[in-house]
Design a protein around this nucleic acid. Structure first.
Length: 947
RNA sequence: GCCCGAGUGGCGGAACUGGUAUACGCGCACGACUUAAAAUCGUGUCUCGCAAGGGAUGUGGGUUCGAUUCCCACCUCGGGCACCA
């Protein structure tokens, strides 16, 4: 046989496949189907990189397996062609973006084909093609008609470098996600999409889809659903009210002031009543001039100013409280106003400390022991006790008095009950003296509010519900009484250095909390028991939230972090927004028969300095007759963001050439939802959320048959450069797949990229390791020469291992553990080299390898006399009975250490296996003179003798 | 600060629901073939120890006959969010 000439083989089969169209989807919408999707690439000038290959190969393998399993497979590809890099390149070179796109997609197509992906090329789409973006515009118009697309003058994020408005999602850390340029606030009329109307469903319907948990979590965090109460605070001597949103209505009695966002409309309304209006206006102006970077700077101190002369009335207790405006309250979230409860909120706490505002405690910490020896016992009554916890400082050193209990593993500060009419201070003093002997205590302060704790008292053998006062004493000297014998038996007195106290009290949540509060003054922000709140005292936080909201006439509502989507771009290379501005009729949609609104040819693509799109300069295109009144009107000159085309592309694939609809009902019904969508984690909050939103909108119009676009979503890890840093053209550390394909072949590249490491994790590219994958394929090539005839069976070892491998590879592909699938095939190959294997069995091996290495397997398959393609042959099935081992080697442990190995057969009883183990020479040495207490046998794995 | 994820040989990594840690690959060493080198094939390769044995899965503790796997605390790295009331 000839040597393995990858160039010849790969070229040959790529041509054959193209002619025979084996990867084309079956036309008739019948039978079981599989729709596998990858994120279509942005055809940048940099060309395809190794990261694309990784994710494309993964879905290629899955699709190929499905095809062999008899599914009608749709694995399509296209181009996410609109976007900034192409436009910027056009500005620089003067070459039309359309031409740039054409050049780039040609390169991408050629590259993708050279790697042997099984795409259905007859369904290729391009978002910048008018036949495609006609439907992007059409969907936008449906949104406009339903009021979901609206124009709004907003403060937008303006990138000073790209000269475009950015969606919130595109601002990362206060700078432009794309270019890293400074982002400032700018007032601009922008088209918006009301994604927030779908916030609740976008959150809830995640329950019904099979996405990786971390993807769901990412989406949920981004949507940021939060349930709470809306409560009105009346303003004294005014008919106006301040509506606040809070998730902690249980703390309302502790609300000592109200804060509005600086942009809050009430400031303007109440202007005449604000005594210090000049300073207030000055403050607001300062805030507005700040960039996002300043506003989000890390340890930025909160600022604010009181609205003098304005008082709000706390609806819970009718107290008059001051009203402030401050930069830590965001106008976009909730109601743009908060009730400040400094005792139970970190931000309010910081602010109150800075401006000397009152702090009122209304929630008392509450701990329940749920684990450990002092965990509460179910079904036993609680005995209530008032008690003290005493933190006592050493008379000289930085050490604190602690007790180590002898009967259990509890350790902490001095704790004891309050007796009769005793004051808490004398109770504390008495307990310290009784338990430790120390006498001369100076009371300094209470450390916290009352702490409530439920636990099991191990000495008294009862459930306790204790209410602790926490006291801080300093010892004046070492004078000490004799400790009673009884106390001595219970615990040991220990002086713990300040830095070690935390680890000493670690096991006990209450002690731990007291200490933390002792060393650092801070608010208690968790749930607890309500106090200081009239008739609500004693309720749990949760219960109080409901009751108090009702009591003050509030409403339970949900709020979301998600904002509406800024959909306008003042750029050329995007879909024109199909709207006409008529002075008489307002915003008029372009009639559907006039779609698509084509991008006009322009000479210069540079955005204008006043922030208008380059389209605005083409008066011939802009000026138009109003379709309604026929009067003079102007076209919208903003274009759509490049998230638009990718929000529905998976729908177009099912019917890419349809001229009447974006896709036919019949095809949609058969093909959607996408069965499996793989893509990058970086798209979970942008593309994935946007497309789910569009899909749900189309579903509401009965235009698509499913609620969700993607049934299953997984994510790949990235490939970083050899130093571990990101691959980038500027760093010059990119790897061009083309070079690898030439030197080692597409099959080697594919196998290597799947073998490199766990698919969902970031991996480091290592060109030196590729040789391993190449050697593997070369050995596969060579071994096909030594196959025995089918009349002779393969050796038993091979037969068993083959079936094990078929099983492992089949399952590993499903769970995307491609690296272990390949390693198991390597193991099989190693054995095949040493043992007899016949053609029939070897062909099964070729079949399971074929999704990974489609060319070489096809060539060998063909050489072995097969006429039809391996890629449409049926996926091999493993035979479970062939996998079962007749004989197994198991380990024999003595006290958890391996001391011997024994061979057992399938039919041996547990008893005989144990007997056999005990007779092993080395086992006998280790068990000699010892009593055998227990023998644990785990079938086919291990036997452990405890002696 | 908060939320995810990960720490295993020289390197990439494997280990099913707790059951013989280090599969598979790279690299390295030695050997065969060769005038020689490359390629290929074979053998070896966590570590201490002559051996019997012992020690190692980021660190410290816990549960268990048995822990890379479960629990607690901490450290380091990667990613996401960042005043969201």
């Amino acid at each position: 046989m000839k040597f393995y000439d990858h160039k010849k083989i790969e070229k040959k089969w790529q041509n054959v496949w193209e002619k025979s169209k084996i990867y084309q989807t079956r036309k008739e919408a019948k039978g079981k189907k599989f729709y596998g999707l990858i994120e279509f690439p942005y055809p940048s000038g940099a060309g395809l990189h190794v990261g694309h290959i990784r994710s494309n190969t993964a879905m290629d393998i899955i699709s190929r397996k499905r095809r062999m399993e008899g599914y009608n497979v749709l694995y399509p590809i296209g181009w996410d062609a609109f976007g900034l890099p192409t436009e910027n390149y056009a500005i620089k070179t003067g070459i039309h973006p359309e031409k740039v796109t054409k050049t780039n997609t040609d390169i991408f197509r050629k590259q993708l084909k050279s790697v042997g992906f099984g795409f259905d090329w007859s369904r290729e789409i391009d978002t910048s093609n008018p036949s495609y973006y006609k439907w992007t515009q059409w969907i936008f118009l449906q949104m406009f008609k339903k009021g979901l697309a609206y124009k709004k003058k907003t403060e937008i994020n303006w990138c000073t470098k790209c000269k475009i408005g950015l969606a919130n999602e595109e601002v990362v850390g206060g700078v432009c996600e794309r270019c890293g340029g400074a982002v400032v606030k700018k007032e601009k009329e922008q088209w918006m999409l009301a994604i927030t109307k779908y916030a609740d469903r976008l959150d809830k319907d995640l329950d019904d889809v099979d996405y990786l948990e971390k993807i769901k979590l990412g989406q949920r965090n981004w949507i940021g659903k939060s349930e709470g109460s809306e409560i009105d605070f009346k303003i004294k001597n005014s008919s106006e009210k301040i509506k606040v949103f809070t998730t902690r209505a249980d703390t309302i009695f502790g609300a000592t002031y109200v804060v509005l966002a600086p942009e809050h409309e009430l400031v303007e309304i109440l202007k005449s009543k604000i005594e210090n209006i000049k300073e207030v206006e000055k403050y607001i102006k300062e805030i507005k001039n700040k960039t996002d970077i300043d506003r989000t700077a890390e340890d930025k101190e909160k600022t604010g100013i009181e609205l003098k002369g304005i008082k709000a009335i706390n609806p819970a207790n009718n107290e008059e409280i001051p009203v402030w405006i401050a930069d830590y309250v965001l106008v976009q979230y909730g109601t743009g106003a908060v009730m400040a409860v400094p005792a139970h909120d970190e931000r309010d706490w910081d602010f109150a400390k800075k401006y000397n505002l009152p702090i009122k405690v209304v929630i008392e910490p509450y701990f329940v022991k749920k684990a450990g020896s002092d965990a509460i016992r179910d079904n036993e009554p609680f005995i209530e006790r008032n008690a003290v916890v005493c933190v006592v400082k050493h008379w000289q050193e930085e050490k604190y008095l602690c007790l180590k209990w002898k009967k259990n593993d509890w350790q902490g500060f001095v704790v004891g009950g309050i007796e009769g009419n005793e004051s808490i201070i004398s109770a504390g003093q008495r307990e310290v003296t009784e338990e430790t002997g120390y006498k001369n205590l100076k009371f300094v302060k209470k450390i916290t509010e009352t702490i409530h704790s439920k636990f099991y008292h191990e000495i008294k053998k009862q459930n306790r519900f204790a209410h602790f006062e926490t006291l801080y004493f300093e010892l004046k000297n070492d004078e000490r009484d004799e400790i009673a014998e009884e106390e001595k038996n219970i615990h040991e007195v220990v002086w713990v250095p300040k830095n070690d106290v935390l680890s000493f009290t670690l096991k006990d949540e209450d002690m731990n909390y007291i200490w933390k509060r002792f060393i650092k003054e801070q608010p208690y922000i968790d749930d607890g028991i309500v106090g200081n709140s009239d008739k609500f005292n004693g309720l749990s936080s949760l219960e109080a939230q409901k009751q108090i909201t009702k009591f003050v006439g509030g409403r339970i509502v949900s709020k979301y972090k998600l904002r509406d989507w800024v959909f306008s771009r003042q750029r050329y290379w995007g879909e024109p927004i199909p709207i006409i501005h008529c002075e008489k009729c307002g915003y008029v949609p372009v009639p559907e028969k006039d779609l698509p609104v084509m991008l006009p040819k322009v000479k210069s693509y540079t955005p204008t300095d006043n922030g208008e799109s380059p389209l605005a300069a083409i008066s011939k295109w802009v000026n138009i007759k109003c379709p309604k009144c026929k009067g003079s009107a102007k076209r919208e000159t903003d274009t759509m963001p490049n998230w638009a085309g990718s929000s529905w592309y998976y729908l177009r694939y099912v019917d890419p050439n349809n001229k009447k609809e974006f896709a036919s009902k019949k095809n949609l019904k058969y093909w959607t939802p996408v069965d499996w969508y793989n893509g990058g984690m970086e798209h979970t909050t942008l593309h994935l959320l946007y497309s789910r939103f569009w899909h749900k909108f189309l579903y509401d119009l009965r235009l698509v048959p499913t609620k969700e676009p993607y049934q299953k979503r997984t994510a790949h890890g990235m490939i970083s450069a050899e130093g571990g840093e990101k691959m980038s053209k500027s760093k010059g550390n990119t790897v061009d797949p083309k070079d690898i394909v030439e030197t080692y072949g597409a099959d080697t590249l594919r196998v290597y990229e799947m073998f490199i490491g766990p698919f969902d994790q970031t991996v480091v590219w290592n060109t030196n390791s590729i040789i391993g994958s190449r050697r593997f394929l070369e050995r596969v090539w060579k071994i096909s020469e030594k196959l025995t005839d089918n009349k002779k069976g393969s050796s038993l070892i091979i037969e068993q291992l083959l079936h094990k491998t078929i099983k492992k590879v089949s399952l590993d592909i499903e769970s995307m553990n491609f690296n272990t699938a390949i390693s198991s095939m390597m193991v099989l190959l190693n054995e095949m080299e040493k043992n007899e294997i016949n053609k029939k069995d070897f062909k099964m091996f070729l079949q399971i390898l074929s999704p990974f290495a489609p060319h070489i397997t096809e060539e060998i398959w063909n050489n072995l006399g097969e006429n039809k393609s391996i890629h449409i042959s049926p996926w091999p099935k493993w035979n479970e009975s062939k996998i079962v081992d007749e004989k197994v080697k198991i380990a024999v442990q003595v006290n958890g250490r391996v001391r011997a190995e024994i061979m057992i057969t399938k039919d041996m009883t547990e008893e005989s296996i144990k007997e056999m183990a005990l007779k092993e020479k080395n086992v006998m040495t280790w068990t000699e003179g010892k009593e055998i207490k227990k023998i644990i046998y785990v079938p086919n794995k291990i036997i452990n003798i405890v002696a």
